[in-house]
């Protein structure tokens, strides 16, 4: 009986030591995303489509494991366009998400990407992007991929793809196009482990250029 009691007590302690942290890791909390000021400039897009998602209402809080933090701020940014016509690439992760032109990085026409090096592998839970929310634009062929090498040859995972006709050549996607706003676009990282995040786009409904004011990657350092 005494041994039985000790066994139960030991098992309970073992359970407490191993399971409680596991429960804690699974504990979810809303991400504390700071939204930039809303721009009331421009004309609302007269836009409707089964493929298009409206973002007029505020996004529901996004739940991520406790401990998830912003891991992209100030991290190195590279791009398919080495010399943006406006702004500089580090502005993509500088924390300035404003709709004003001083916050804007403008890349060339056609399919372009920006890539963020998180400098170590992370479990990714959310990727937020604000292209340019001065007016309600739609950016085409928005694709988000993550990988563990800068050339995107290893462990490449596509997290978002709204290129429904494969015009970007990265494979057809079924995600929706969306209207730019101060909410930005939140892409679920699904806990994918990766060091590099690459975001593609191919022009927008106002012109053929590609813009970014900010990209935020939220995650936890991988073991």
């Amino acid at each position: 009986m005494k041994y039985a009691m000790l066994t139960i007590l030991g098992a309970a302690m073992l359970f407490a030591v191993t399971a409680v942290p596991a429960f804690a890791a699974d504990e979810q909390a809303p991400l504390k995303i700071e939204l930039p000021e809303k721009s009331f400039m421009g004309t609302p897009l007269d836009y409707w489509s089964e493929n298009l998602e409206f973002t007029y209402k505020a996004r529901d809080p996004f739940m991520a494991p406790v401990g998830t933090e912003l891991v992209s701020k100030g991290k190195p940014v590279t791009s398919s366009d080495k010399t943006p016509s406006m702004g500089k690439l580090p502005m993509v992760t500088d924390g300035d998400k404003g709709f004003q032109e001083k916050s804007l990085v403008e890349l060339d026409k056609g399919l372009q990407w920006v890539q963020i090096d998180l400098q170590k592998k992370h479990k990714l839970y959310a990727i937020l992007v604000w292209h340019f929310h001065t007016s309600e634009r739609v950016y085409h062929d928005f694709v988000v991929r993550v990988a563990n090498d800068p050339d995107f040859t290893q462990d490449v995972v596509t997290l978002y793809n709204n290129d429904h006709d494969n015009s970007a050549g990265l494979g057809a996607g079924t995600d929706k196009e969306y209207v730019e706003s101060n909410e930005g676009r939140l892409v679920d990282g699904k806990g994918t482990e990766a060091r590099y995040v690459r975001l593609y786009s191919k022009g927008n409904t106002s012109n053929e250029r590609n813009n970014y004011v900010e990209v935020e990657v939220w995650g936890i350092t991988a073991e």
Binding site: D46, W48, S49, E50, N51, L52, T205, S206
Partner: peptide, 29 residues
């Protein structure tokens, strides 16, 4: 874009829809 819901409601078979810009602020479905 404005007429698209009404047009869509009158379509009798299945369609894929796409969005195209005509001019800034004027979109075609």
């Amino acid at each position: 874009a404005k007429l698209a819901p009404e047009v869509h409601a009158r379509l009798k078979t299945e369609y894929q829809s796409e969005n195209y810009g005509l001019r800034p602020g004027i979109r075609l479905v």
